[in-house]
Amino acid sequence: MVREHGLYPSIEQYACMMDLLGRANRLDEAAKVIEDMRIERGVQVWGALLGSCRIHFNVELAERASKRLLELEPRNAGNYVLLADIYAEASQDVG
């Protein structure tokens, strides 16, 4: 997109990319894309990543994403619930 058309992705396009990479269980790649973003990382991007962490039970990355989400949206209870679900599922897999 950038090389051929000189266009930089919008936050919505990054969020779609996070969703696609997350559904494909390519969470490390998704995290790398977030690190390399040239624009402010918004709730859409972190929310998509957190949702993917729940699907694939990636607690470490979920904690990172939820930390950023809680900074951006401290009153959004859904973010807390999603992290709690991830913790609950992780504890069931261990025990």
Rank of each mutant, 00 (worst) to 15 (best):
Asn79Cys: 12
Leu69Gln: 01
Cys16Tyr: 04
Val81Pro: 00
Arg38Pro: 03
Val94His: 11
Asp36Gln: 10
Ala77Met: 10
Arg23Ser: 03
Ser52Cys: 09
Val43Cys: 11
Leu69Phe: 08
Ala65Tyr: 02
Arg41Cys: 14
Phe57Arg: 13
Ser66Lys: 05
Val2Asp: 03
His56Thr: 02
Ile34Met: 09
Gly42Trp: 03
Arg68Met: 14
Pro74Gln: 02
Ser52Ala: 15
His5Phe: 07
Leu27Asn: 04
Trp46Pro: 00
Tyr8His: 10
Ala84Phe: 15
Glu29Ile: 04
Asn58Tyr: 08
Asn76Leu: 13
Phe57Asn: 13
Tyr80Val: 11
Ile39Asn: 00
Glu60Met: 14
Gly22Pro: 08
Tyr87Pro: 09
Asp36Asn: 10
Asp28Arg: 10
Gly47His: 01
Val59Ile: 15
His5Met: 11
Gln44Gly: 07
Leu83Cys: 15
Cys53Thr: 01
Arg41Ala: 14
Tyr14Ser: 00
Leu27Glu: 01
Leu72Tyr: 11
Tyr8Thr: 11
Leu72Arg: 09
Tyr14Val: 07
Arg23Gly: 04
Glu60Thr: 12
Glu73Thr: 15
Glu89Lys: 07
Asp28Lys: 07
Met17Val: 05
Val2Arg: 04
Arg3Lys: 10
Arg75Thr: 03
Asp85Trp: 01
Val45Cys: 13
Val43Asn: 01
Arg68Ile: 08
